[in-house]
Design a protein around this nucleic acid. Structure first.
Length: 333
DNA sequence: TGTCCACGTCT
DNA sequence: AAGACGTGGAC
């Protein structure tokens, strides 16, 4: 498990010449630092930089500081998060901001143990924040970093003990004391050079010691396991181009969000008088949903449901539901 | 068009 | 500790 003894110098040199300008990268002493880093790290959980940038800009326009976020409503926050996915992050962020303001004097706790008690902060985000905000000697092990070391060692990701690897290479990784930069540099390097597909091995500053570059049988990272499910979606619609949605679905996913009636077993629902519209696939995280979409024009709808416009809504509507809107809209053309 | 891949936290 | 949780992009 030996690693190039000047890896941190090489990566930092590369970073100095190649880093991107990102809206959350503010000066070391900026009063916005904690808020911007917190927000961006939450958004960057399971979401790529390119996708996050416009959401980050829009979010910071609406919620200017950690304090103003902390006194906002979940409804407002979710509406601003609309379309970014993994909505639990938005709820956790709000809860986290409240806790930081109320219990920690609007400052980040100084240890990983304490920081991980905040909602929505796990190993990755905790280490990232400690490094970025306090320049602590830590490494945030995200998908990029895993891939970089997996390639350098030419060893499968799940066979590497990253805690151990970092501990054994402290002197190498933290000797420059540019710890905040190194946290970002490793991830940036993974995203731009040591990419999942077609890494830039020929121009890479580590090619001399990288075992992946040297080896013939190159290791690939493991795939995500997909779970197939079959769902029947029943939409009440009316002539005003409205669709009935409810928060009371028995289905687990998108809990507490606006959805039409969703039934796993179509036979358990009285589906007479419903018209079949179409079948389509809607992958959600690790689920592979096979959707059968039914509709019915109705005046009366169950009490649990309310009418929503197929166009714009004040409420937060997940993309799963928006896809249904799109299908139903074809009926009015 | 459908299918696969990219991205951490919580229980 | 396996499964739940979203969306966008490439092909």
């Amino acid at each position: 498990m030996h690693i190039n003894p000047i890896l941190s110098k090489k990566i930092l040199a590369w970073y100095d010449n190649n880093k991107r300008k990102l809206p959350w990268r503010v000066g070391k002493k900026s009063p916005k630092k904690l808020y911007y880093r917190l927000l961006s790290e939450f958004m960057l959980q399971q979401t790529q930089v390119k996708t996050v940038i416009p959401y980050f800009n829009n979010f910071t326009k609406k919620f200017k500081t950690l304090k103003s976020l902390s006194i906002s409503s979940e409804r407002e926050v979710l509406k601003t998060w609309e379309g970014l996915g993994y909505y639990r992050r938005a709820r956790n962020l709000l809860a986290c901001s409240k806790k930081l303001v109320r219990d920690h004097g609007s400052r980040l706790p100084y240890s990983l143990e304490k920081i991980k008690k905040l909602p929505g902060i796990g190993d990755y985000t905790g280490n990232a924040l400690l490094g970025l905000v306090y320049n602590m000697p830590t490494i945030a092990v995200d998908g990029n970093v895993k891939r970089v070391f997996s390639r350098i060692l030419n060893k499968e990701e799940n066979k590497i003990n990253f805690e151990n690897l970092i501990d054994k290479n402290k002197k190498n990784f933290f000797k420059t004391n540019r710890n905040a930069d190194f946290v970002e540099a490793l991830m940036e390097f993974g995203a731009l050079v040591c990419k999942p597909k077609d890494p830039n091995c020929l121009t890479c500053c580590l090619k001399k010691t990288c075992k992946y570059f040297k080896s013939k049988n190159k290791i690939r990272s493991s795939k995500r396991k997909m779970i197939r499910k079959n769902y029947n979606v029943f939409c009440y619609i009316n002539k005003k181009k409205q669709i009935a949605l409810t928060k009371e679905n028995k289905i687990g996913f998108l809990k507490n969000f606006y959805l039409p009636t969703i039934i796993e077993d179509a036979n358990s629902f009285n589906n007479r008088n419903w018209k079949f519209l179409k079948n389509y696939q809607n992958p959600i995280s690790n689920l592979k949903l096979n959707i059968n979409l039914y509709y019915k024009f109705a005046k009366r709808i169950p009490q649990s449901h309310n009418w929503y416009s197929l166009e714009k809504n004040k409420e937060f509507i997940p993309s799963f539901t928006k896809k249904i809107f799109k299908q139903i809209s074809t009926l009015f053309k």
